[in-house]
Computed example of a mutant assay.
Amino acid sequence: MYTIKQNLVAQDIYSIKCPYSMTAEFIVVHNTANDATAENEVAYMIGNKNQVSFHYAVDDQEVVQGLPIDRNAWACGDGANGKGNRKGIQVEICYSKSGGTRFDQAEKNAAHFIATLLRERGWGIEKVKKHQDFSNKYCPHRTLDKGWNGFIQMIKSYLNDIPVVSSSGFIVGEKVRVKESATQYATGQELAWFVKGSIYEVTKVAGDKLLLSDIISWVWIDDVEKVSANTVVATTQSFLVEIICDELNIRQKADFNSKIVGTVKRGEVYTIIQEENGLGKLKSGVGYISLNSKYVKRK
C-alpha cells in the first residue's frame, strides 16, 4: 500500500522544531494545504528554522517521518503549553490543495497508517483528533469538506483488520513461506499441495494463527517462516489446469495485488509454465492466475 521511511530533523535544531520530550496521548490529523509529496514536505520542514513541525507526512506512495515521536511538534496552533502541540502525534496528509485521486489515495494511506499507530499503542478510535480541535483553524480542510466521520469510519475499517502482533512477532503485510513440513490448516483440514513452499502476505494475525493472502483457512505460525520481501519461490515444470470457477482474474505479475489484465472462464484448460507465490504463469505470457484449488484443478 505504501512504504515508510525516515528523514529526521537534526538534533542541533531540536530547540526550534521539537524542544520538549513527549509521551504521546493521541494522534492529530492535518492537511498540508499544498501539493508537495511527503518527501518534499518533510525535507522543507526540517530544512528551515521556523517553529513549525510535524511527525509524519503521508502521500499516495509513502509515509515519511520527520520528528521522533518522543519529541513534541509545533502543529496545532495552541501554544507552547497547548495539549495539541505537547501531547499529539502530528500526521499531515498531502495533496490537499488540489485534491483528486492523489489526495484520495493519500487519505486512505493515512487512515491505514493511523490505524497501525492506534493498534501498536492499544488505543481506540477516540484517540484520533483533528487540528481544528485545538485551534480555530479549519484543518484538515479537505478531509473536513469530504466528511470527518467518513475518515474516522475508514480508520475503523482498517483497525478491524490490524490485530495485535502475535507473540511470535508476525505482523500484517510481511511475507512468509509455508513450510514443506506443513500438513494441515489451523482448522484441521488437509493443506492444499500447492500451498507448501509458496510465499504469501500476512493479512491477519490472531494469537498463534495467521491468515495469508489468497488462503481461506488460517495456518499455524509454526508452519510458516519469514522471508525477505525480495524472495521468490518459482518452479518451471509445466502442467495443465482446468478452470473450475465461473471466472478467474489474470494478474499482470505474480502478485495477488497486481493489476488485473483479463479473465479466464469455467471449463477452459491452460498450460502453466511457472509457479510463483501461489500463482501460475500462463504459457501465452499474458499473465498469472491463482492456483488455489477453489478455482483450478490440476490435470
Rank of each mutant, 00 (worst) to 15 (best):
H30C: 00
F54P: 12
Y185R: 03
S217T: 12
K17G: 00
G280D: 07
T37D: 07
Q51E: 06
T263C: 09
I250G: 04
V241G: 05
G47K: 10
E225M: 11
L282P: 13
R266D: 09
A43I: 13
D12Y: 07
I272D: 09
N257E: 11
Q184E: 05
N72W: 00
Q237K: 12
M154H: 08
T32Q: 12
T271Q: 14
C245T: 15
S157H: 03
F151R: 06
Y185N: 00
S15T: 02
G147E: 05
I46G: 06
E126R: 15
K281A: 12
N34V: 01
K253S: 13
K83C: 01
K5H: 12
A38I: 07
S98P: 09
P19Q: 01
A186C: 03
Q61N: 10
Y158P: 10
K108M: 11
T263P: 05
R121Y: 09
C94G: 04
F170G: 04
I171W: 05
W193K: 11
C94L: 01
G122I: 04
C76F: 02
D223V: 00
V241Q: 07
D246M: 11
P68V: 04
G84K: 02
K299A: 12
S181V: 06
N50E: 13
V64I: 04
S166Y: 05
I69M: 15
E242A: 08
V58L: 04
K281D: 03
I273Q: 07
L8A: 02
G197A: 00
S166F: 02
A182K: 04
Q11L: 06
V42E: 03
S293R: 05
Q51D: 01
Q274N: 10
M22A: 06
K130H: 05
R251Y: 12
V64K: 08
N149A: 14
T143Y: 03
S290Y: 02
G124A: 12
V205M: 07
V52T: 13
E41C: 08
N50L: 13
R119N: 14
V172Y: 00
N31C: 15
D222L: 09
K226H: 11
T236R: 10
A234W: 10
S284V: 06
N109C: 08
S135Q: 09
D214V: 00
L191G: 04
